[in-house]
Design a protein around this nucleic acid. Structure first.
Length: 647
RNA sequence: GGGCCCGUGGCCUAGCCAGGAAAAGGCACCGGCCUGCGGAGCCGGAGAUCCCGGGUUCAAAUCCCGGCGGGCCCGCCA
């Protein structure tokens, strides 16, 4: 007999088969999958362990419910089910826990430390592009959410046996980097200070430069406008706000801000100079290239430090500018010119999707929004420089070619839904139909600060590092209040875990309103709670100090609450992992692990494990502890959260 | 004007896609449990018009339509 690796799925299958066989005579069209679909868990355990609402069978065969009931009543139970009852038109079964425990125990015994991690049959090449934050300031918590989600997806697919490549798109051709470089030049290109993180230092230059440029532009507009310009009032308000922002920034580094203000004010047209810089860089001017690359690499080194702190790694760092330098962007433009969808829009080369976007088949396969009007996609500026989406088309093609990808997943904020739809349409229009279908936008919502709008341009954001620093401080405080100390290692594992948990605990398409007090709460329903529970299991297992005596386990002792419930939950882990991998919803895993920890802690308080006198029961209890231990480690592992043997 | 996402006790979150038995966790609040294998824990209590209005259905937090509220997008920005 081969070992069953996924007990719960096996259980569902057995139940469905039982039902199908019983109803085969008068309900021949009823498929196993239909029944599987209908099976649910009763709201309360008294009803049974699994339940089939019989009225839902009426969809498949129209006969009287009593006929179902009669047929079902005569089901001869196999050994894993021990009781069958019909209550309120529900067919409820009770599991023979002793038998089911055997299945679960064999599954855990067979897979050991890999319990629950069952590879898919087909091994895919999956590219995940994530973070890809503009290299102009430190990672803020929004990017932190992206990093944690992308890392979660990568770990999940790896566990499911796929070949995962993690890529970071270094967006160095945009106006943002050019603005930063411009500011750095105006500052006189000083050597970045050693004692400040480069992303923080350059991030300040970036915010200050942006704000000053905007102030100068507004001032010019105001002085040109007539006194009766109705917009003048609004502009004045905007200007006042910017000046406040600048004075806030000034409080961080007076000298730097004054110098920038002085030097940028002397420039008669900063906007034009920023654009000129962009052009020089894109055309490959060696001086511009070395300067841009220097600045970006510096900022990136800071970002990488944060990512290392989060234990998020990348396989490839893709420079956007390389796509222009190596001709790939030009190729895309040439392809576009030859395509049937090419038009000149307001004099600029563009793709027109009006004939494509309403085709129901295309809409469905490319997962386009129901009724949406996608405007023509302009591919090139009239000054000859490239645009973001054009470069992104080239990049996507490269991601497919580079790693023979079956799937490209882009972890990108919800605000880019339209742009991502445009990207897929453009790929389709240029003849990359397969690629278009296999490009997946994994969308997530932003992280908001209560009251303030986060803005990198204004230097207004909470960085990942600040949050982690605060979390570490909280951990220290808690330990101090208990009269003990904490190692750096423990402090780091707990704070990083708490951060990741926070980012994964709510559905990706929900906005997170970042509340510092809430975020620093290390109580239940958090990573530390799960880590603590894990450490508890380690404590017991270490104290026992030997391997389990699998053959001595007393299965019959499984049929006692709350062991029963706990075992049932343990048996569900592989099923949960599969579900998470299908739905790509981290919160499912979190809910499951919390419940497991709750059940374990509650049980732990009720029954001694090591003091159990019956050897068979003691081995069963050790098994429960061991399985909980493995599940917590594997579950947290997928979330990128480390565990500790001692806290 | 059009589109996307969200709305569940005071607060945060699961359940919604695949409708089904008395809506599930947590925080905060109230009351108990520390010489026991780890109290970052355990036991108990209180607290909900599932945003509103229609519709579909034997049955709606869940599906459909229309509102309301919040966030976001519709650029020769990224």
């Amino acid at each position: 007999m081969s070992i069953i690796r996924d007990p719960y799925t096996y259980l569902l299958g057995e139940f469905a088969e039982l039902v199908c066989r019983a109803l085969a005579d008068f309900c021949p069209s009823l498929a196993l999958n239909d029944v599987l679909h209908i099976i649910e868990e009763p709201p309360r355990r008294e009803y049974g362990d699994l339940s089939l609402p019989m009225y839902r069978l009426l969809k498949y065969c129209k006969v009287d419910l009593s006929k179902f009931a009669n047929a079902v009543r005569n089901i001869s139970l196999n050994k894993i089910f021990m009781e069958l009852k019909i209550v309120n038109d529900y067919l409820n079964v009770r599991i023979n826990t002793a038998e089911y425990a055997k299945v679960i125990i064999n599954a855990v015994r067979g897979d050991g430390a890999n319990y629950g991690l069952i590879p898919d049959d087909r091994k895919l090449n999956i590219v995940i592009e994530f973070v890809s934050a503009n290299p102009v300031h430190p990672l803020h918590i929004g990017s932190g959410r992206n990093a944690v989600l992308g890392d979660f997806l990568a770990r999940l697919f790896e566990v499911k046996g796929h070949n995962v490549q993690r890529r970071y798109y270094i967006n160095d051709l945009g106006r943002q980097v050019a603005t930063l470089v411009y500011g750095y030049m105006r500052l006189g290109m000083p050597t970045p200070p050693e004692d400040v993180r480069p992303d923080i230092w350059f991030g300040l230059i970036y915010a200050v430069t942006n704000t000053i440029i905007d102030i100068l532009r507004l001032r010019k507009e105001l002085s040109n406008a007539g006194k009766n310009d109705p917009e003048a009032y609004v502009k004045q308000l905007e200007l006042d706000e910017l000046i406040m922002t600048l004075s806030e920034l000034r409080s961080r580094n007076k000298e730097l801000v004054d110098r920038l203000l002085d030097n940028i004010s002397r420039d008669s047209d900063p906007d034009k100079n920023v654009e000129e810089l962009m052009m020089r860089y894109e055309s490959g001017d060696p001086k511009a290239v070395s300067l841009f690359r220097f600045v970006v690499a510096k900022v990136l080194s800071g970002i990488q430090e944060t990512l290392r702190r989060l234990n998020v790694r990348f396989d490839k760092w893709d420079w956007e500018s390389d796509l222009v330098f190596n001709g790939m962007v030009r190729n895309v433009l040439e392809l576009a010119r030859k395509s049937n969808y090419f038009i000149l829009y307001k004099g600029a080369p563009a793709l027109d999707f009006s004939s494509l976007q309403h085709d129901p088949d295309i809409k469905k396969s490319l997962k386009l929004p129901k009724s949406i009007n996608i405007p023509p996609l302009i591919l090139m500026r009239s000054d000859g420089t490239s645009l973001y989406v054009t470069r992104d088309i080239a990049y996507t093609i490269m991601k497919f070619n580079d790693s023979r990808a079956d799937l490209v997943i882009n972890v990108i904020a919800n605000e880019q839904t339209l742009a991502q739809a445009q990207l897929r349409l453009a790929l389709y229009a240029l003849g990359f139909k397969e690629e278009a279908v296999r490009t997946i936008h994994f969308s997530y919502e932003l992280v908001n600060l209560p009251g303030v709008k986060m803005s990198g341009r204004r230097g207004r954001y909470v960085s990942v590092d600040e949050v982690l620093d605060n979390l570490e401080y909280m951990v220290e405080e808690i330990m101090r209040s208990r009269g003990s100390t904490v190692s750096n290692e423990v402090k780091k594992v707990i704070s990083v875990g708490a951060f990741k948990y926070m980012m994964l605990a709510s559905s990706p398409n929900k906005v997170i309103n970042f509340d510092a007090n809430e975020a620093l709460n290390l109580n239940r329903n958090s990573a530390p709670y799960l880590q603590y529970t894990y450490a508890r299991t380690c404590g017991v297992l270490n104290k026992y100090g030997r391997d389990l005596e699998w053959d001595l386990i007393d299965y019959s002792a499984a049929n006692v609450e709350p062991r029963r419930e706990l075992l049932y939950h343990i048996g569900k882990f592989p099923y949960i992992i599969s579900k998470v991998a299908t739905d790509l919803e981290p919160e499912i895993l979190i809910v499951y692990l919390n419940r497991l920890a709750d059940l374990f802690n509650s049980w732990y308080d009720q029954e001694p494990i090591l003091k159990e006198v019956s050897e068979g029961i003691k081995q069963l209890k050790l098994f429960i502890t061991y399985a909980t231990n493995i599940i917590l480690r594997n579950g947290l592992g997928i979330m990128g959260i480390d565990v500790l043997e001692r806290i």
